[in-house]
Simulated assay, not measured.
Amino acid sequence: MPTSLTLKNIPYAVYQRLKAAAELHRRSLNSEAIVCLESVLMAGRVAPSDRLARARELRAGLPPVQFSAKDIDAAKQAGRK
């Protein structure tokens, strides 16, 4: 059941960051505050071993590719143009 909350004495720097984030995400200050609170308070913690297992699973699904140092240097140079 939704309810209301009034915040007082918010540090100006925190307010500015919240306002900037709300504009970036095209949300109201209220909606941005709710998203921020949810991300901190409702976030599901993932054990490092589970995260590592998932990364290995994803990597196993990729085709094997070998890059030489020359290939890597060429890619870096291409990205700088």
Score class of each variant (00 low, 15 high):
L41F: 09
L5A: 07
L37W: 06
Y12I: 11
R27T: 00
T3P: 03
P11D: 13
S68V: 05
P64D: 03
K8D: 07
R17D: 13
T6V: 13
A22T: 00
S4K: 12
D50Y: 13
H25M: 06
V35T: 02
D71L: 06
R26M: 03
V40H: 15
L18T: 00
L62S: 08
S4Y: 04
L37V: 08
A78H: 10
N30C: 02
K8W: 13
T6F: 11
L5T: 02
K8Y: 11
V40Q: 12
S49L: 14
E23F: 01
K19Y: 09
S4V: 03
A21S: 11
A78T: 06
D71R: 07
V14W: 03
A75N: 08
E57S: 01
K8A: 12
A53H: 15
C36Y: 01
K81F: 03
P64N: 02
Y15F: 02
R59Y: 06
P63N: 08
P2L: 04
A47Y: 12
R51I: 09
A20D: 06
A20L: 07
V14D: 03
E23K: 14
A22C: 02
Q16D: 13
K81M: 05
D71V: 00
V40M: 07
L62N: 05
K76E: 09
A60V: 02
A33I: 01
S49K: 15
T3Y: 10
K19D: 10
N30R: 06
V14G: 00
V46M: 14
E23S: 11
R27I: 00
R51Y: 14
A74M: 06
L5C: 05
L24W: 06
V40P: 00
N9Q: 12
P63Q: 14
S39D: 09
L7Y: 05
S31H: 09
R45K: 15
Q77L: 09
Q16G: 01
L37R: 05
A21T: 00
A53L: 08
K76F: 09
L5W: 08
Q16L: 10
A74S: 14
R45F: 11
G61H: 10
Y12F: 06
S31D: 15
N9H: 14
R56Q: 13
R17M: 12
A60C: 02
L24Q: 15
K19G: 01
P63Y: 02
A69S: 08
A75H: 06
K19Q: 12
R56I: 03
R27Q: 07
R45Y: 14
A43W: 03
R17V: 01
L62T: 03
V65A: 04
M42L: 12
K70L: 11
E38G: 02
R26P: 00
N30A: 06
R59G: 02
R80D: 09
R51K: 15
L7H: 04
R59M: 11
D50T: 15
A78I: 01
K8G: 01
E38V: 05
